[in-house]
């Protein structure tokens, strides 16, 4: 009995080795991405593989890995062989450059528009009919309003949420560091749950019926409304929000080793093509070149007054000030 078990395990090992080996047979790319891009890249990968086959005759499979943006960046640092990373914020790709040197520090200059082929923003998702009458940021801190947002320590989307709120309070008339801080402190008091990732927060709001308003990526909000019930939710666009730029980059260390540099580069560049821009708009990301996308898709995006991450000093400074251990976020909860 023992012998046969060992036998079986050897067999299984061989099988396993076969599994690993077989992936080298054709060209593959691994796209390491964050949570809300699942639907976009699911469709885009198929489109790009078709395009690539036509252009070069090569069979290409693009594999996907999804998770919280920070977690994904850490996986790449620890050796996950992603040929390209498509993450929620530049800070996470900076970390890959800085901690592991897998791509040059100036990676963001290598592709147009800060290496972000599409953008998004932060909006409010409220329950149908907007029972708490939430119109703008000030309404979030009214008594009795519960706000759902993920944990900015672990979620990229949550950092955009947090910074959008901070930026709003900072830029409004009479705003200062102090008013921004007291506004965000007040806002966090209205947050009953801090899910570790953006998708978890959406699930809490949509599935578990928790809270009155969800701070969400615009694309996530659209998706929730269209996938989970137009009769249940509405989107509210605040007077001011942040321009979220989810960047993309080739991970040079991986592509050099695997010899996939050209394919990876083409994969990302194709995001800027009419096909890529159309798909981005279809999946509720704001295309960088709206003229290339489907006008009916573009028409869905309301006009928003944007602040940018540069207005807040850039990612490195914002991260250090707000989200690092002992930063403003920790201080708010330490009280």
């Amino acid at each position: 009995m023992k012998l046969s078990l060992i036998h079986r395990s050897l067999l299984a090992l061989a099988l396993g080795a076969g599994l690993i080996g077989s992936t080298h047979a054709q060209t593959t790319l691994l796209n390491v991405s964050y949570d809300p891009t699942r639907e976009l890249y699911h469709e885009y990968n198929a489109e790009f593989a078709r395009y690539w086959k036509e252009k070069t005759g090569e069979d290409l499979t693009v594999r996907q890995s999804h998770g919280g943006s920070g977690k994904q960046a850490r996986s790449v640092i620890d050796g996950l062989e992603g040929d390209v990373v498509t993450l929620a914020l530049a800070y996470d790709i900076d970390a890959i450059a800085e901690k592991a040197g897998k791509l040059p520090a100036d990676w963001q200059k290598r592709l147009p528009h800060n290496s972000a082929p599409y953008t998004s923003t932060i909006v409010f998702l409220v329950r149908k009919g907007n029972p708490k009458n939430i119109r703008d940021w000030e309404d979030l801190v009214k008594p009795g309003v519960e706000v759902i947002t993920p944990n900015p320590k672990t979620s990229g989307g949550a950092r955009w949420n947090y910074l959008a709120a901070w930026g709003y309070a900072l830029k409004k008339s009479g705003g200062s560091e102090e008013t921004a801080r007291s506004y965000v402190t007040e806002l966090l008091k209205h947050v009953p749950v801090l899910d570790p990732a953006a998708r978890g927060a959406t699930n809490s709001f949509v599935q578990r019926g928790l809270g009155d308003v969800l701070l969400a990526w615009e694309n996530e909000a659209f998706l929730s409304v269209n996938e989970l019930g137009p009769d249940k939710f509405e989107i509210v666009v605040p007077s001011v929000s942040i321009l979220a730029e989810p960047p993309v980059a080739v991970v040079d260390a991986v592509t050099n080793k695997r010899g996939t540099g050209k394919t990876a580069q083409a994969y990302l560049e194709y995001l800027y093509s009419p096909v890529g821009q159309k798909l981005a708009a279809k999946h509720y990301y704001r295309p960088r070149k709206p003229e290339l996308a489907d006008p009916t898709h573009v028409a869905r995006f309301p006009k928003v007054n944007f602040i940018t991450i540069e207005d807040l000093g850039g990612w490195q400074a914002a991260q250090k000030k707000h989200f690092a251990d002992g930063g403003v976020f920790d201080q708010i909860y330490a009280r």
Partner: peptide, 11 residues
């Protein structure tokens, strides 16, 4: 969760 949070910050 604290361990995970530290990891997410590359700490």
């Amino acid at each position: 969760l604290m361990i995970i949070t530290k990891l997410e910050q590359y700490d």
